[in-house]
């Protein structure tokens, strides 16, 4: 039992379960999944599908944070990617064709990758602090997205593009499969090769790892590029979800949600060791929380407060000092009856 509670992911998982239980109390068949039109349907499926964009952004963020960095520009990249792809499809002669959609996706991902490389360049070559370097794109990026859409909300009708955000394959949402695939790929790359260890070493001590022969600059550059690429993919899913590119609101504050997911998952903002599965749990907590507000019927007036309370509870439970205090209390209480008996 002690082993389990000591596990780094115990409290985040407990919080997730608590949220699911709370939902089930209000809606007994909350966890029920049925088959509808040949695909799965139900609240858990909604959560998995809505979690996909945040999952992608948070994956990139985990790697960046592991190298002691932070990427504030992810929301702007989300907006640019969505704006680019939908504007391209809207102006193409044949919005419904698969080749148009693939080209639009390629352009959006290509530009997102370039934006990630730009961040990496500022941080690793020019040596600007990550928070400042990515702040540049965070501010400028939404302006660029507005330029692309001309301040309008671009909408298109294109069945192949819609598949990405709302489609199903083998009964599961395509968005979830994409995010899951990327998650597995990153997990394999970082845990089955030396890449993960190199990222951690750069995060723990960049100078020492460089002296030990680790190409710290390349590693930092790579993680920022990946963060840009993953954000671009998230932007495509978000745009496809409602088939509209909203330069102002797409991915707004997603950087904060992503950082929160990473921190809930137990990765320290000081860099070093990181936990991909922890981030996954963090993302699921945040997405479930959003649905919980509707299911439980929290008044819109107190929604931010409710969310903040849950987050405070989870982070406090994870703090070693708080946990020790509680453990000490528990020990005292356990010890007292024995004294009486003696």
């Amino acid at each position: 039992m002690r082993e389990i509670t000591r596990h780094a992911l115990f409290w985040p998982v407990a919080a997730l379960i608590a949220l699911l239980v709370a939902n089930t109390v209000y809606r007994p068949d909350f966890l029920a999944v049925t088959v509808l039109d040949g695909h799965l349907f139900g609240a858990p499926i909604d959560i998995l599908r809505n979690a996909a964009p945040l999952m992608l952004v948070a994956l990139g963020m985990t790697l960046v944070i592991a190298t002691r960095g932070i990427d504030l520009s992810v929301g702007a990249v989300v907006a640019i990617s969505g704006a680019l792809s939908l504007s391209f499809i809207a102006t193409s002669p044949d919005p419904g064709s698969v080749s148009t959609v693939l080209l639009a996706i390629a352009i959006a991902l290509g530009v997102s990758l370039v934006l990630g490389v730009w961040n990496g360049f500022l941080v690793s070559v020019v040596g600007i602090q990550p928070i400042i370097a990515t702040l540049i794109l965070m501010t400028a990026g939404r302006g660029i997205a507005m330029l692309i859409t001309e301040g309008q909300i671009t909408t298109v009708t294109s069945a192949p593009f819609k598949t990405l955000g709302s489609g199903f394959w083998l009964g599961l949402p395509v968005a979830t499969l994409v995010a899951g695939g990327v998650f597995l790929l990153v997990a394999l790359l970082t845990r089955r090769t030396a890449l993960g260890m190199l990222v951690e070493s750069v995060g723990i001590n960049p100078a020492a790892s460089r002296l030990a022969g680790v190409k710290a600059r390349t590693i930092v550059w790579t993680v920022f590029a990946l963060s840009g690429l993953f954000s671009g993919l998230a932007g495509l899913i978000l745009a496809s979800n409602v088939m509209a590119a909203d330069a102002n609101n797409a991915g707004l504050f997603i950087e904060l949600d992503a950082i929160l997911a990473v921190v809930i998952g137990g990765t320290s903002l000081q860099g070093g060791k990181f936990s991909l599965s922890g981030t996954l749990v963090g993302v699921l907590i945040i997405t479930t929380l959003t649905l919980t507000v509707t299911i439980v019927g929290i008044s819109p007036l107190v929604t931010p407060l409710f969310k903040a309370l849950v987050v405070i509870a989870v982070t406090l439970l994870q703090s070693p000092r708080i946990r020790e205090t509680f453990a000490a209390r528990a020990r005292q209480r356990a010890a007292r009856p024995e004294e009486v008996a003696a």
């Binding site: 809606r27 959003t290 649905l291």
Partner: peptide, 19 residues
Amino acid sequence: TGNFTRTEGKQVMEGFLQK
């Protein structure tokens, strides 16, 4: 509240449909 946006309108409606 759906905050006047499509994304949040969709998310809240999904919640209502589950509830």
